Simulated scan of single mutants.
Amino acid sequence: MLRPILSASVRVHALLSYAPTNRLLAWLRRRDRLKFGIPFMLLGLAYWMATILLAAWIQSGAPAALNLLVLLTFWNSAKFITFDPYSLLALTVARTREAVARRRAVKRERQDVADKTPVPIAT
């Protein structure tokens, strides 16, 4: 029983990795693009508004099949809204690591210069 469930979950995961919003989030997770976290959170808010408008439209008599679209827009809004704190945290960690690496490089460079400096001999 566990094997078919696991197999289905792996196939669904593989299929959803090609979804446009998942590809966009994977593109944004690179170091040079983490700074775009806040603007893309606004995209999440746009998805949230679409969810609200679709739900209101369904309540006023639209086809019930649109509930799948409501679910999809809600899920995408949640992904983009939660990406913002992640991107800020990842950007802070990356900048801290880069600053530490720069300080270590400067320290190593100073040590190399100090090692190459000839020591005067007292006579």
Rank of each mutant, 00 (worst) to 15 (best):
R31N: 13
V113L: 06
P118G: 04
L24V: 07
S7D: 14
A50K: 03
R11V: 14
R3W: 14
I81Q: 04
T123C: 04
A8R: 07
T117L: 11
Y47L: 02
A94P: 00
A65H: 14
L24K: 06
Q59F: 10
L68Y: 13
V10W: 06
Q111P: 01
Y18H: 11
G44I: 04
R108C: 05
L2Y: 15
A50E: 08
V12F: 05
N76A: 03
D115I: 05
L28K: 11
S9T: 13
V100C: 15
R108Y: 05
R11P: 09
F83S: 04
D115G: 06
T21F: 09
Y86W: 15
A114W: 00
L43A: 08
A26K: 12
D115C: 03
V100G: 03
A114T: 02
F36T: 07
R102I: 10
L54W: 02
R11F: 15
A122S: 03
V10P: 06
Y47V: 00
I52A: 08
V113Q: 03
F83A: 07
P39S: 14
L45E: 06
N22G: 13
L16V: 12
N22S: 08
M49R: 09
K35P: 04
A46T: 07
A56F: 13
R30M: 07
S60M: 13
S17D: 10
T51L: 01
L89F: 12
M1T: 13
T123N: 08
Y86V: 05
A56Q: 11
A101Y: 09
E109S: 09
A64I: 01
L34W: 01
S9G: 00
L88D: 02
L15M: 15
I121S: 08
L88F: 08
K116Y: 10
A122G: 02
I81M: 05
V113I: 09
A78R: 05
F36R: 09
